[in-house]
Design a protein around this nucleic acid. Structure first.
Lengths: 340, 340
DNA sequence: ATATTTAGATCAAACGTTTGCACAAAATAT
DNA sequence: ATATTTTGTGCAAACGTTTGATCTAAATAT
């Protein structure tokens, strides 16, 4: 194997402790020995063994990120690469490593998280809180582990998280539609187990209320995040509500499916029906007509979440421990004032 | 901190060695003690400390994946999530962890890789060999580290890698165009430093030769992988070759840019000019006209690469150590026989 | 001159495992 | 009955660090 601290010590004619202190940057080392040791390390191509260090320091300088398979699938585009870029940019800045694991389902997600903490001994966890996985969070809180959520977890105070403003931005989207004059706006959402889904529904309701419109549950469809689902749910909606003039979908793929269904029905987007999506999938700007949607600062969310966690771990003062980042309404071609 | 092996030993009234052997599944342990120990572990909620174990076993059961920032950007869509899914599915199967790091540039990439191996002591490395980063590979070979490439590295034999059939599939695309009757086919490629770029150019040339067409370097543009580049390079090409009837681009974004330029020139895809892309970006099927392209089995590449590495690490027999996976030509609407 | 402080280094224990060797008891062979 | 093998367990060293306690020599104070 590679050279150890003892080898360095021997070459530099000091004790291993001294080498260790040189590495740690202790100030009780004379300039002369400092240089001798550095030189020896250099000559030998010495790298300290992180495992040995972790063992005694009880800290691995590593954070864990557990992803459930479904999250990866759901987030793959464009979330995952972006949030990953954000996270790694700050782990790198702090000299930390990132340990990843992906799990099949929610019980396995919890197992993996605990194994990371207790077996691999990561110092903290970053959690993509897509769903209200109370069990995992409760365990983590009870055992006083350090972690921060990307997303939020209703019901538990005092959690560290960074989230986008789902409620407000959904509201913003609906405001935009009502201000254009739309009165009959459908909502294409996901399972209410998903927090984003819930929050965006709340924003939708707020927007309606603000415009003096009544909430009509027959205008709401709850499906999964596929184009297929969007297509079918819009077929159903048009049957129930032929006089629909706008659709707000909580994901762009859903919106795309909806647009397809609208076209197939012989109607025109945006002339007959306006469509607004969410997440600003790269597809949104390419599709014809280009999709009006909401862009989430996903890279920033990764950065802020990682930074918060590392500040906590380093004992630095965590200035804010619940951050919500603004999203942006991107107006493109799929929406206009109602013509009928 | 959590319970250690000694705590378990005390409860089960055995020595730590015995507990260790129970965990390791040694067959020299009586059924009775085995159960007593298991019970004690259960009761205490014991997790073995991976750091301590790694220290003595000199193996972390972890593999590293280093990504340069530019690779993440280039691969973000749809490569990164897909390959990640592939890799994690097998690391999980083998009970290994995945350590990630992303680096700014190619020199940092090398540093990070070596730090992972020597400091964090990962057992092996997975490398996305987008570019001929000889220096890193040479070091790894010289120091006899275990690693496998996703992609290939020309010039060095005996490397372990899994790659898609860039040459053959590019050839396939060109065959398809020549069989339709195209005689003047432009090539939109990237920097020849990128191996994929080189290989696809070779395939292009092969295809031309097979059809009895001469290679004309004025039909070749070498640019970066952005839509903008595709747009501009096609403007240049159309000026040089107004009689162009087909374009083969080594990335879909390039192809999309090309299509835009063609439209802007008042020409129609595919009637006037056929366009074929590469990589099957999700955009390809949404754009109008839908883009003919080549789909790479990227998930499988992740699986195979990870499996190869883990087999190697586990001392299992590695059946194949250089795998090339077939790609598929997806014919959509952007290509047809030439009309002019 | 001696007593005290300070600087710079070493010693040895500790972190939580694994594992070769030794050993006792039980099982089997002679 | 004793000699040999087998089975199950424990002892203690090792893995490569860090760090509190300790020591020595030099510097400073009395």
């Amino acid at each position: 194997m590679g050279p150890t601290i003892k080898d360095v010590a021997k070459i530099a004619k000091v004790s291993p402790s001294t080498v260790s202190r040189v590495i740690a940057g202790s100030n009780r080392i004379s300039k002369a020995t400092h240089q001798r040791v550095r030189k020896a390390m250099e000559d030998l191509g010495y790298y300290p063994n992180a495992n040995a260090r972790s063992l005694v320091k009880n800290s691995t300088e590593t954070i864990g990120l557990v992803l459930s398979r479904s999250v990866v699938a759901a987030l793959s585009n464009p979330f995952f690469p972006e949030i990953f870029r954000g996270i790694t940019s700050v782990t790198q800045e702090y000299g930390y490593s990132l340990l990843l694991s992906s799990s099949k389902d929610y019980v396995q997600e919890e197992e993996e998280a605990l194994r990371m903490l207790k077996e691999r001994r990561v110092d903290g966890l970053l959690i993509l809180a897509s769903r209200a996985n109370d069990s995992l969070i409760e365990t983590l809180v009870k055992e006083k582990h350090s972690f921060v959520l990307v997303g939020r977890m209703p019901g538990i105070e005092e959690l560290h998280w960074v989230n986008n403003d789902n409620v407000q931005s959904a509201e913003k989207a609906v405001d935009y539609l009502t201000e254009l004059g739309h009165k009959k706006i459908a909502f294409l959402g996901g399972s209410p187990e998903l927090i984003v889904s819930r929050d965006r529904l709340i924003g939708y309701k707020n927007g309606l209320q603000k415009a003096g419109l009544d909430f009509d549950f027959t205008l709401v469809e709850e499906v999964d995040f596929t184009e297929e689902s969007g297509f079918k749910s819009l077929e159903r909606l048009l049957e129930r509500h032929p006089d629909l003039t706008a659709v707000f979908a909580i994901d762009d793929l859903l919106a795309l499916g909806a647009m397809k269904a609208i076209k197939e029905e012989g109607l025109i987007v945006p002339d007959d029906i306006s469509v607004v999506g969410f997440n600003d999938n790269p597809l949104a700007s390419y599709v014809v007509p280009a999709l009006t949607t909401i862009r989430i600062p996903i890279y920033d969310m990764g950065v802020q979440a990682a930074r918060m966690l590392l500040q906590k771990l380093k004992g630095e003062e965590v200035t804010e421990y619940q951050i919500v980042l603004d999203s942006e309404l991107i107006i493109r071609e799929s929406s206009m004032e109602p013509c009928r």
